[in-house]
Amino acid sequence: MPADTTAPASGSEYVDRGRAAEARKALASVEHEPGAPKPDPIVVADEVTRQFGGLKAVDVAHVEIQRGAITALIGPNGAGKTTFFNLLTGFDRPNTGRWTFNGKSLAGMSAYKVARLGMVRTFQLTKVLAKLTVIENMRIGATGQSGESLARAMFPFFWRAQEKANTERAGAILQRFKLDAKRDDFAGSLSGGQRKLLEMARALMVEPELIMLDEPMAGVNPALKQSLLGHVKSLREDGMTVFFVEHDMDMVRDISDWVIVMAQGQVIAEGPPDSVMADQRVIDAYLGSHHDQVLDFEEEEKILQEAQEEHVKNEEEAQ
């Protein structure tokens, strides 16, 4: 199912093609249990573990991700979400485990090959190419460029046409993400939110089937959040599968069709947003199982949010 990324070329408005309803219907019959089988999984992972010294950062027995749906991966800090992302996309090597994408085993595969297969990720701390312009950031995302081979690079004749086509496609996506005004600016000059947008837009240049977003809302100002939400939803409408890590519970509740909860490296709960957020195991995981006073979800989320912002701030200062 090739993703049709250029279709809604004008505006970022969320065009409802009914994919949300489709996805939710398909997931309706799925059990609300960790590792529940899905009707049409795009990713299936088994026994994936990653050890850091004495700490088992990831220990996922079995998990499936439904095709065409937006799946959220949540969990308290240190639950292993980003590590799990890194493992799935080949940016880190697990100690054990096997996982497939469209039925093809990805274990031991290099990150760039994973991306070429159509499983593309973004990063928690955005990785825009600061000293390249926005449009160059986009162009580099296109796959199968003949001008990227050393033998042909020196002769524009070989790649000029393709470059033009890629630039047009990039222009359309930039427009959709409302970045076309920044087209010739250095990516380093963009704001945090714009960087998130650019990174997502750039990922689309790869024409992914599955797009994996690592905290797309972190560091984004509230004004941009709504439009970012729209963008993520529109990815699903374009036929892509979205898998994202997020701490922003509004976003999780708002856009996800399915939620997977990790704690201490394991998948502890699964289900549609509302059912998961009411799950005792989830509340225990976030608060520690020996909490004596029951915080409501809003408060808890606020605390988490603050902690997260603190964390990101520290990270950025450390950079």
Binding site: T89, A111, Y112, V120, R121, L129, I140, G141, A203, M205
Partner: peptide, 8 residues
């Protein structure tokens, strides 16, 4: 890493 994530 960014470049790697784009399939290069």
């Amino acid at each position: 890493d960014a470049v790697r994530s784009l399939g290069k």
